[in-house]
Write a protein that binds this DNA or RNA. Structure first.
Lengths: 195, 195, 195, 195
DNA sequence: CATGAATGAGTGTTCATTCAT
DNA sequence: TATGAATGAACACTCATTCAT
């Protein structure tokens, strides 16, 4: 995701500018929400507004790029945990970390939500990356008996999005997460409890 | 919540218009999100823009009124279930119904999120109503052994907001809800599972 | 100026309302300027906005009525001074009093300005009243030798408007008035001074 | 006063537009009063409404800029008269010229009034410029014996504002000015006249 | 390529005026 | 007659997007 739609590679300084804009956008959207103005992003990035629009022809596309970058970063982190010693800890730890990050960055929640839906083309492209990496973490945790066997990656993604939202908006991070985690763990006499 | 801040009760026709505006706003915000324009609301309500602003002097106040109405309606429904035959079914059924409604109405999610935080004055007034009604449902379900004893109303509200968000954005309603519900149920050997 | 344009006389309560509105308008316009809203006037008068518009069909006409009332009151005061013992003191005292009143009530200045120009029909009707009364004061003062003989009522009205404006906006009441008054007094060797 | 608050100098075309807007605003405000709409100014200037707001972020700031420009121009003209041959003629001539200009441009009167009061920050900055220049003219005229010695620049400014108002609104330019000028001239037997 | 001035549709809000109650 | 709800044109201001420099 570091080259433009047209085939030609970017000049070094153009690439640097693109990165500056992306970083600025991420921070601005995190702090002020996605309704922050493009000018604000340009200001923070230290470039002209024209430069922002050269790299991202619409505000929509800039937002998308931010979300994609976030998803890719998350996917990368999940990837690294693939060979962790304790699969259960790897899975739940990753989940927790994502949620706590979302608590301060709205955009993370939005990214997760869209990744699950494939609503936008670009996030749709990045979503599967995270889903696959998360799926791998999930499988290993299930094999180790730390997570119940009857849930799939899609549900976990949705749950992740939901908990991220709750963490950012409705307070009560730890306690709510505990409920979700308990719901993800195996529980032999569950059938009985369900009545 | 059907009379204006000023005190004096509204004339019959004014009340009717107020209701029309509120209903239109609820639908418009549900479909287009809360950034929909006030003009759109007026159009949908079939009244002039001035009428909307007469009843709700700022867009903010209109949004608040919508959220409050939603919360009050939910609280009312919870209230009615207070004496249901099966406390577990009452609690989980209510939870499900709220979530499925949120799937089509973004505003419900937002209302729940704000109700948990007391961010805005008005929703702060309505939030406790829902929280109390939900708390009553929760207690009865806990007494009946359908819900684990160590969760409080606050966590359940947050969970409700999170699941509503997930339902509306990230798809996968039923399956995700199943996980949350299992997390809310008692499970004797949980300690063991947590390792 | 206490009956409507149509011939029929007003009912007692209607007349009372008209007076209340006029008094409220005078105060509101004095404090907030003539751009204050008609609603504000209605509120201050303790009547509905419809009542204001029944008595004064446009905001313009309400403003006019206020100005006319002010002019009439000033004319009345001038009238009373007609037989004062010291004609010079009567003239200059009246002038001073008008100016100091204008310092706190913008509307007075506006009334004076319009009275001089006959711009609006209604004030045009009231203007001559003041001009005549002021003219009488002026003549007596001239006869007594307190005011130079070569100025007319029109110039004095204009000077009055100007000094009222200066008093309300540009501070320095007394000192500026002193200059104007000296300009109005006879001065035998004026021709010499003018070079 | 030809560069924006931000510091960096404007591009040539931007400067041209800024000037066009300022000129248009001056004319529009002169003709329609300061309550004329910003759109009207844009239309007259032949630019988009956004351009007006880019140069003057609020209507208030646009109005201020107009007043400041007027004051600076007047100050400049006064400056040029500093070394005129006849100090009395310089002083009274300048006074007359200002007043006759105000007769057609309301904004001039407003600028003078505000310059005397230092109400707004920006006019406060330009006001002293005019006051100083006018003060110099005044002093020289006093030294030449053309103006009485016991008046200061502040009173003259206030008188100027008042006469400008009278000229614009209440008609009777020349005659009224004659009175004011006579009040400003020395008159040995004034004490007697005041009796 | 980078810049930032120009654009104008769109937004929330106000207010004089009308008219049903 | 009095009321105040309804109306909609008008306003100040914002912002994504374009394009001349």
């Amino acid at each position: 995701m570091t080259s433009p739609a047209s085939g030609r590679p970017l000049r070094a300084d153009a690439l640097r500018n693109r990165a500056k804009v992306l970083a600025a956008a991420e921070e601005v959207f995190a702090v002020q929400g996605t309704s922050a103005s493009t000018e604000e992003v340009a200001r923070k990035a230290g470039v002209g507004i024209g430069t922002v629009f050269r790299h991202f022809p619409t505000k929509e596309s800039l937002l998308e790029a931010v979300l994609v970058a976030l998803l890719e970063r998350l996917a990368g982190e999940a990837e690294e945990l693939r060979s962790a010693a304790d699969p259960g800890e790897a899975f739940f730890g990753f989940f927790s970390r994502v949620v706590s990050r979302a608590a301060t960055k709205q955009a993370v929640t939005e990214a997760l939500a869209e990744a699950g839906v494939d609503a936008r083309a670009a996030t749709g492209r990045a979503g599967p990356g995270l889903r696959a990496a998360l799926g791998a973490l999930l499988e290993r945790a299930q094999e180790a008996g730390a997570v119940r066997a009857d849930v799939g990656a899609a549900e976990v993604m949705a749950l992740l999005a939901g908990m991220s939202y709750a963490a950012g908006r409705a307070g009560a991070r730890e306690d709510v997460l505990r409920i979700a985690f308990d719901g993800l763990r195996p529980c032999p006499d569950r059938a009985a409890a369900r009545g």
